[in-house]
């Protein structure tokens, strides 16, 4: 059928008819709406702000979140790579006969106060680490400008990294140790002797 409708003669304004929507469509719509709502209900992750695809549940994301200790160590690694890596190396091996290693060192596993004292004021050799003598190296007061939390992070990192197997360190411990260092009245860098004399525990 082909009608030629012309623009030239204008029919009256259109009106709308009375045909009803079929009931079937309504039922399909309700059904699909139900499926959709069910689907949204299943996969909405409780409308949490922190669940992004491909993860699906708030619990899942919470289980994946690293523990406080892991975060502390990860943060310590960043601080280490800024402040320590130039001398002690990324693998903690130190350098030559001047800079002692941190990997496998009995010092880093030892008393926290001693570590804080050394980072706070610096240390002039000689020092014995892991059965070897290290001589001329002089450590600066690298930890002096760090906040207690940052120092705790970097010490925790060093104690746990390279199979050192030490424990993480809290901010409280660092603050206590700092107080002890300040009370000792040490002005320049330590030597092992003065460190021992000030009452810090020296590893065997």
């Amino acid at each position: 059928m082909s009608e030629n409708f012309s623009n030239l003669n204008e029919p009256s304004e259109p009106s709308s008819g009375t045909a009803q929507m079929p009931m079937g469509i309504m039922i399909v719509l309700i059904l699909l709406g139900y499926i959709g709502c069910y689907n949204v209900d299943q996969w909405n992750a409780n409308f949490a702000a922190n669940v992004h695809a491909p993860f699906t549940e708030p619990d899942e994301v919470a289980s994946l979140a690293p523990s406080a200790e892991e975060l502390l160590v990860a943060r310590g690694k960043q601080i280490y790579s800024k402040n320590c890596v130039a001398c002690h190396q990324a693998n903690g091996a130190g350098s030559g006969t001047d800079i002692p290693p941190l990997a496998g060192s009995e010092w880093v596993k030892g008393d926290v106060a001693t570590i804080v004292a050394i980072t706070q004021k610096g240390l002039i050799g000689p020092i014995s680490v892991a059965g070897k003598k290290y001589g001329a190296g002089a450590m600066t007061a690298a930890g002096e400008t760090l906040g207690a939390d940052e120092l705790a992070a970097v010490i925790s990192y060093v104690r746990k990294e390279w199979s050192n197997g030490g424990s993480a360190v809290g901010v409280e411990e660092v603050n206590d140790a700092r107080k002890k260092v300040n009370d000792s009245g040490q002005s320049g860098q330590w030597e092992v002797k003065t460190l021992e004399a000030a009452g810090f525990i020296i590893p065997e």
Binding site: E3, F5, N7, P11, E13, P14, S15, S16, G17, T18, A19, Q20, M21
Partner: peptide
């Protein structure tokens, strides 16, 4: 919705469908 019924000179099939 305006021009098609107007030009072919019929009324729009269903007001209900249109509203939906």
């Amino acid at each position: 919705l305006y021009f098609i019924p107007k030009i072919i000179g019929r009324e729009l099939f269903s007001r209900q469908w249109a509203a939906f």
